[in-house]
Design a binder for these strands. Structure first.
Lengths: 222, 222, 222, 222
DNA sequence: GATGAATGAGTCTTCATTCAT
DNA sequence: GATGAATGAAGACTCATTCAT
């Protein structure tokens, strides 16, 4: 078997096991048993267990990075929201399709190795930075309200991670609905939009029975 | 030294180490060295390493659970948003104050033990359920737009986790600003509120230059 | 509580546990828990676990030694068999009454400590020597056939041990029947006595149907 | 080295050490040091220390079981005593040749593990049952006196064990003499055969000078 | 290339014993 | 005398990695 084919074979089996049992509970013995190769053979193709894991992780990271495109502004470019939606769609559909990889990335991804941990963190930071850029752009375009876009971007990232993790865990939830909900939520939050700009509702009406829409959201919008 | 004092001492040191190195890279030797006790002493107070870790985790989980109160609706109750803010404030200030515990909960919290993993997941699910209840309540009160509140609740939870993790990592960011940003983001999303209800902007204007506010958010609000 | 009373209390509980679990599986923790004393108190009364065990063992050994009397020959002395029977009766009734001690002596009595093992062996050797003396006496008196009385004595000792062990294990079997069987067996073996001296049966008739009594036992009695 | 060879090598060394020091005082370190292998290698061939010991024990048990044949009755079959003698010869010569194994079986064989203890007891019970069958057969054939053959069989078993143990310990004593003595003793006991059937001696003469043959054995033969 | 036997550092855990209070 | 917290040596077992065949 040729080098790449062999590597692929081992990677394929390893993914499953890592996803199921996590990094530490997975032994080389598990992997070679599944892959049907000898102990020594494993080390012919991978420096060590950690490198194998890293490679799997790298794969997801690359895939995902490739699926997140910078928003383009300008005549002839699609609607910004469309671009966002397309990004999300690509990312979420990959994540939900490659359940095993997703699980590895979302759950078993910390505490092995300082270096590896940092790589994963760096990946997320990169994603957050992309999101932040989009937000900053939106602010410039007066589409996005002024706010701490760094915090916002992590909130968005975290929301995506958690929703995808949940969807992956439960197995239900279509990619489309997940994407739409994330998008809606990210853009508009939970409030009914009508309530957000009513001229007659504001901080002034704050007290009272606590049920007025204005007193609910008003103060948040400075 | 008396039982409770000794336990506390060991717990205190263990927290630090677990937070710094994670569960697997921390060994009993590390803990006893830090705590300045003998090997046997450790096992006098804790069944084993796992049990110690579990206890630390349980502590955070209890603390947090106690800090999240159900929203109360009715005359004489504070504004719902105020209640949300208070919850967030209690949670976030605890998390940012107890940095070590936070790190343990947010990062090193998976892949030890199926049982332990499940406990943590159950905790998050409980929190998500609380959030969802509040959202459902909001929907009923016509304050929250109709949507899949389960997904929403996980998005909110994820947002909080990620922002707190980031804030904890970076060390900057005041509790107040973190809370306000999360609250704003959760309630209103990223969009400028004015854009959300303009009567003359809607799905119809979807195509085109991709820059119009309506074409940006309109389609999301069906 | 006075020294001797305390010792006795601990010894009493320890016996039970040693009998049930053997020396190695019994911990000091078990003993003090049962005896209701503190860890340190244990070491106030016994040098260590081994010494405690040794003391228990010594107790049995002394009791048994006292119950085995030398056969006395001479006018006015009871029948030799009666003396044997009386010895056996005293020994066996003690062993079956003190089931726990018996179990310790018979089962858990080797492999701790070279020294302890040797003490036990020495005890058995002493018993065997006593038996051998009786046999030698019997030979002198022409009551016992000439043979290797050392081997004989160990055979008898072993027989007693095994039968008592079995009786102790099963719980049935009266002391009397055990004693009678041992005695009968020791003195006469298994053969029907008539067969042993019939003049017309002997080695000569050896071949044939393999069932003749002479051909069965004859050759043994040269 | 190939699997079977390595196992055999480890078993060989382990036997010696177990025999010398007993189960508990023998540790894995001893065994691997003797066998000249690394710690991990040990666990490549044996699940754990207990399993290794069990295997050694099993080996003796199997060997011995194979050496004890059921007595066959019928025309053309060898004399029953000859068959007994052959059984004993096979068993005793194995036990005295494999001194180490014998020591393990006879001395260090209790108190590890309830399960292991029970296996050993079961083995002895099996042997006792075999002996009892032979005795019952003898009774039927009117060669063996009526008696409690279960007790008898344990007495015989115990006799063999103790004599072999002694012979193994002392190192003197030929297999042949051991076998003959056991056989003689088992069949005829210690009494001079002439004394057993003299018509003029019986219970009636019980008292007296304690030296008369009849008063010695008579009462035993009811 | 492939194999799988061998390695040994690393960890956890137990438990008899000591000693300050 | 009594206590029980503290000790640490001892021992079992794991598993990633190496290397001779």
């Amino acid at each position: 078997m040729h080098r790449q084919a062999r590597r692929a074979q081992v990677l394929r089996h390893a993914k499953r096991i890592f996803a199921r049992k996590g990094y530490h509970r997975t032994n080389v013995a598990d992997i070679i048993a599944r892959a049907g190769i000898a102990r020594g053979t494993f080390y012919l193709y991978f420096e060590n267990k950690r490198e194998l894991f890293e490679e799997i992780l790298q794969q997801v990271v690359s895939e995902l990075t490739a699926r997140v495109l910078r928003l383009k502004v300008g005549a002839g470019e699609p609607d910004a929201v469309e671009q966002l939606r397309a990004n999300l769609l690509r990312v979420v559909s990959y994540l939900l399709a490659e359940r095993e990889l997703t699980d590895i990335l979302l759950h078993h991804s910390t505490g092995f190795d300082r270096e590896l941990d940092e790589q994963i963190q760096a990946f997320y930071d990169r994603i957050a930075a992309l999101i932040q850029r989009s937000l900053d752009l939106g602010v410039e375009m007066k589409l996005v309200r002024g706010a701490d876009t760094r915090i916002m971007s992590y909130a968005i990232l975290g929301g995506i991670k958690e929703v995808v993790a949940m969807a992956s865990r439960r197995g239900d939830a279509s990619v489309d609905s997940v994407v739409e909900e994330i998008l809606n939520f990210g853009l508009t939050g939970v409030a009914r939009p009508e309530l957000l700009t009513s001229p007659d509702l504001g901080p002034a009406h704050n007290g009272g029975n606590g049920g007025g829409a204005g007193s609910f959201f008003g103060p948040l919008l400075d």
